[in-house]
Simulated assay, not measured.
Amino acid sequence: MNGTESRQELPLASFASGCRCCSTEAPEDSITSTAGAEYALEGLTCGHCVATVENAVTAVDGVAAAVVELVRGGRSRLVVSGTPDDAALRAAVTSAGYRLITS
């Protein structure tokens, strides 16, 4: 380059308990406004866990969308929109390695 490179400094995200995928703080784009059936999940610890559950649940017939709100070390929340069969939903979560708790 010609030596006149200009860079803009961006602020870093700050999460008290780790990275964004492992933070126990709800992100600003939280699922509180999402309509659908809600379930509690146990066993999730990071963003990879979230992606695994979301992928497994969205593969179930009748699921329009699935969003997980991670609570590391506690009960995470799964919101499912659409009209899936509850047994198929439970089987998908269980086969992914996690526990679904009907709320």
Rank of each mutant, 00 (worst) to 15 (best):
T4F: 13
E5R: 12
R7Y: 14
R7Q: 09
Q8C: 02
E9Q: 13
L10I: 14
P11Y: 09
P11F: 07
P11R: 12
L12H: 06
S14F: 14
S14E: 12
A16E: 14
S17Q: 13
S17W: 01
G18D: 04
G18C: 04
R20W: 01
C21K: 00
C21D: 13
S23I: 01
S23M: 03
E25Q: 11
A26D: 11
P27E: 06
E28R: 07
D29Y: 05
D29R: 00
D29Q: 03
S30Y: 05
S30F: 08
I31D: 11
T32I: 08
S33A: 15
S33K: 12
S33C: 00
T34V: 15
T34N: 04
A35W: 01
G36Y: 09
G36V: 08
A37G: 06
A37C: 02
Y39S: 02
A40M: 12
L41K: 05
E42Y: 02
G43S: 05
G43D: 04
G43N: 07
L44Q: 04
T45M: 01
C46S: 03
G47W: 03
H48V: 13
C49K: 00
V50G: 03
V50Y: 04
T52E: 14
T52L: 12
V53L: 09
N55G: 09
A56F: 11
V57Q: 06
G62N: 10
A66K: 11
G73Y: 04
G74C: 02
S76G: 13
S76V: 07
R77F: 04
R77K: 15
V79H: 02
S81A: 15
T83F: 03
L89M: 11
L89E: 10
R90M: 02
R90K: 14
A92S: 12
T94I: 01
S95E: 15
S95G: 15
A96Y: 08
A96I: 07
G97Y: 11
R99Q: 13
L100M: 15
I101H: 11
T102M: 07
S103M: 09
S103F: 05
S103V: 13
